[in-house]
């Protein structure tokens, strides 16, 4: 019951952040909102894992958290230095 309520709340916040990704007046807002969107999705996946009792989903959440951070690092590095790799 509480779990369903939490799922609804987190889904709502994911939609709000997605609105910020689409609207975000500057590229900085989009990067920030995209980073935050990945965190929201991690929380959502963890809640779904609790609801369905599928522990495999926790691995997906772990991979998504790594990917979200790497995306932010790569994008900001590209914008600051003009390339991602040395």
């Amino acid at each position: 019951m509480i779990l369903n309520l939490a799922l609804v709340i987190v889904t709502l916040s994911t939609l709000l952040v997605a609105a910020r990704v689409l609207r975000g007046p500057s590229w900085g807002d989009r990067i920030m909102a995209f980073d935050f969107l990945s965190v929201n999705l991690i929380v959502l996946i963890v809640l779904i894992a609790v609801k369905t009792r599928l522990l495999v989903l926790l691995d997906a959440a772990l991979v998504l958290s790594l990917l979200g951070f790497l995306t932010t690092v790569a994008l900001t590095r590209y914008l600051l230095t003009g390339r991602v790799m040395r």
Binding site: I2, L3, L5, A6, I9, V10, L12, S13, T14, L16, V17, A19, R20, S26, G28, D29, M32, A33, D35, F36, V39, N40, V43, L47
Partner: peptide, 29 residues
Amino acid sequence: PILIGSFFVLTAAVGVLRFPDLYSRLHAS
């Protein structure tokens, strides 16, 4: 804990949507 956590996640999304510029939104997120 789940209720408190989801409340804070929702507030963060509201802050990201409402704050006036990127640097203030970073505080929320």
